[in-house]
Computed example of a mutant assay.
Amino acid sequence: MQKTYNCLIVDDEQLARNLLSAFISKVPFLNEVGSCKSPLQAMEVMRSGIIDILLVDIQMPELSGIDFVKSLAVKPVVIFTTAYSEYAVQSYELDTIDYLLKPFSFERFMKAINKGVEFLELKKQPTDTAGNDDVIFIKGDQKIHKLFTKDIFYIEGLKEYVSFYVKDKQRIISLNSLTKLERELEKYQFIRVHRSYIVNLNHVTAFETHALWIDDKEIPIGKTYRDIVKKKINW
């Protein structure tokens, strides 16, 4: 039997809530547990049960959708629904699954839902049988990728995007920020060595004052990061 996923709608516009309710009702594995006109009302609903997928507008009175999501200690899968494209980058920094720009079709809605369900299913999967349970989930190439941190060699910043270079010389481009990843990956032996690079110290094969190497890839060490790098590798 297919699992049912609980959805919560948060939008100050009645027509927008009605449309999402109609879309949800068409999908057998989705269950609408609430349709709220404000984040404050949604908080009450979220206290009463488990929410798997949160469909939330951004521009709302009292509290924006972005600030609402930031306030959540435990976040469900978040899909923003908004008429404003300028919030896209900011929303993805909150690990949102998708960003639906109004008006959107049922087909586009389902694409976002399927990404969310894929993410939830990946989180339930058992981790590496060798005992390494250090994994992260990233969005890239219209997929959710489950990456073992030991398989990430380095990460390169590309303005609003980053490139993950992983084993077998694969490259995954994701809408993300190095600053956010630096905080998340620090506990896994990753270190920021340049404004454009984070490296996995376990894969560093050589280094000098101004650069380090991961196999044949030379990565510069920024002047402001040199003391931190030296301390980290006991140089």
Rank of each mutant, 00 (worst) to 15 (best):
Q2E: 14
I9Q: 08
V10Q: 01
D11S: 04
D11K: 00
E13I: 10
R17H: 05
R17A: 03
L20R: 03
F29Q: 10
L30N: 08
N31A: 08
Q41M: 09
E44S: 11
D57S: 04
M60N: 10
L63I: 15
L63T: 13
S64K: 03
S64G: 14
D67R: 00
V69W: 01
L72Q: 02
L72W: 03
K75R: 15
V77G: 00
V77M: 08
S85K: 15
S91A: 15
Y92M: 12
L94V: 07
Y99L: 02
L100Q: 09
R108C: 02
R108Y: 09
M110Y: 02
K111H: 14
K111F: 09
A112M: 11
N114D: 12
N114V: 01
K115A: 08
V117E: 09
E118Y: 00
E118G: 02
E121H: 04
E121K: 12
L122E: 15
T129M: 10
T129D: 11
T129S: 12
G131R: 10
I138G: 02
I144V: 15
H145Q: 10
T149N: 07
K150I: 11
Y154A: 03
L158S: 05
K159M: 09
Y161N: 13
V162G: 07
K167Q: 13
K169V: 00
I172K: 04
I173S: 05
T179W: 00
R183K: 15
E184Q: 15
E186W: 00
Y188R: 02
V199H: 08
V204W: 03
T205S: 15
F207D: 06
I214V: 14
I214P: 01
D216Q: 14
D216M: 06
E218Q: 15
I219P: 05
P220Q: 10
Y225S: 05
Y225V: 08
V229G: 00
V229S: 01
K230H: 12
I233N: 06
